[in-house]
Design a protein around this nucleic acid. Sequence first.
DNA 1: CGGGATATTGAATCATGTCAATTTCCGTGG
DNA 2: CCACGGAAATTGACATGATTCAATATCCCG
Lengths: 234, 234
Amino acid sequence: MQASIQTPQAKARHALPTATPAGPATPEPLDLLEQFGATLRFGRDHEIHAEGDAAEFCYRVVSGCVRTVRLLEDGRRQVGEFLLAGEVFGLDELDTHSFAAETVTETVLRRYPRRMVEALAESRPALARRLRQLALEHLRVTQERTLLLGRKTATERLASFVLEFDRRMPASGRGLLDLPMSRTDIADHLGLTVETVCRVLAALKREGTIQVSRTGLQLLDRTTLLDLACETRH
Amino acid sequence: MQASIQTPQAKARHALPTATPAGPATPEPLDLLEQFGATLRFGRDHEIHAEGDAAEFCYRVVSGCVRTVRLLEDGRRQVGEFLLAGEVFGLDELDTHSFAAETVTETVLRRYPRRMVEALAESRPALARRLRQLALEHLRVTQERTLLLGRKTATERLASFVLEFDRRMPASGRGLLDLPMSRTDIADHLGLTVETVCRVLAALKREGTIQVSRTGLQLLDRTTLLDLACETRH
DNA sequence: CGGGATATTGAATCATGTCAATTTCCGTGG
DNA sequence: CCACGGAAATTGACATGATTCAATATCCCG
């Protein structure tokens, strides 16, 4: 399936959701890029860029869901992260993309040339600062996952995953979220197998901690989840 | 044990080892900081800063070895990374240190106020660029470890570890490196137990792939190691 | 109302963890 | 210089959480 590309237009249309919901909106330095953006539409399971591709563009998810992926030769797969509406990917790279990016569902993206980002940052300290901040936030999330993968049990991983997802999921009523990705995607994100993901979700459901369907999930007992997730802060 | 602190002095003394061993040395923007540096000396197993501390300073290892550490309430431990001579830590932070930092061996550090780094970056695009680059390199290493922890077996993890260490270890003759850290440290870095680390090292030794002693290690069969490590590139 | 993909469940196996001894190393003091 | 002692490393035996393999069950989509 091919993506449709639209040339730059309606500027304000795809702006970042304001970081601070109340108070005077902080100016978002990334907005400088809007004029260089193009809008792309993809069907489900479509590759946006491959691992190792020159990092020519970065992207913002307008709607839908994207996953980043790495493979070992023998097929073992690692899902780096899931990107939701409003989130940016492909920006925190050196010269090449260290992960491939694929759509999970039908997705609309806004694409920007990284060359322009870098160029603008040279003369705009606010943008430069913002770029570093984004990289550092990304780093912190990745370090958190390092702890999850290195030291947590299957149940703890699922609890952490569900809670993180709940935090990031845009405004779906209290504790009610949908899971656009497959169980296999979740497994490859958490360093588990599909079967283990299923079993753990079933167990959490049995104990009344969550409610799950194939594509959705509801948090019933947040306390138990927080407990299981072993989160020091939050 | 208390650290001795020396006031700023001999500027060039603790400069970064030139990134490019041959060719015209690229000017290193971080050198701007040298005038704000202080030298610290620590004994072994000394805490440099705690997890959650305000990120007031960053550090360069002059000699010795440092580990970064996170703990789960029940004592499970994750070693983020080992820092060797010439390497910097505590720089890639937002407001607080997300890991504690401890010396592994006797260590000499050079310490810099982060506030100065950030301030200088505002007016020096080259420094700002360098800061982001460091964050991105750090991110990439962490993502690599994510794959290791999520998808590799114990043997593959040890092979990857040994090879990475070999790459970073400053000029110790071909394939001959010392391991300043304990087996427990290695285990907590690789998401394994001490016992597993011992057994895997013993197995690799038995098969003639490496030579190990308590504090040192020699690579005998690099091909096998690369194979085991499942490295797509390098 | 099929049919293929995805999810779920069960049973058996395996890699790694746990627990429990040793053994080795190495600094220290006699 | 050597014996001692404590910490770290190693090894063995056993336990277990997660994987693997296999069989349904369920959900969509056409």
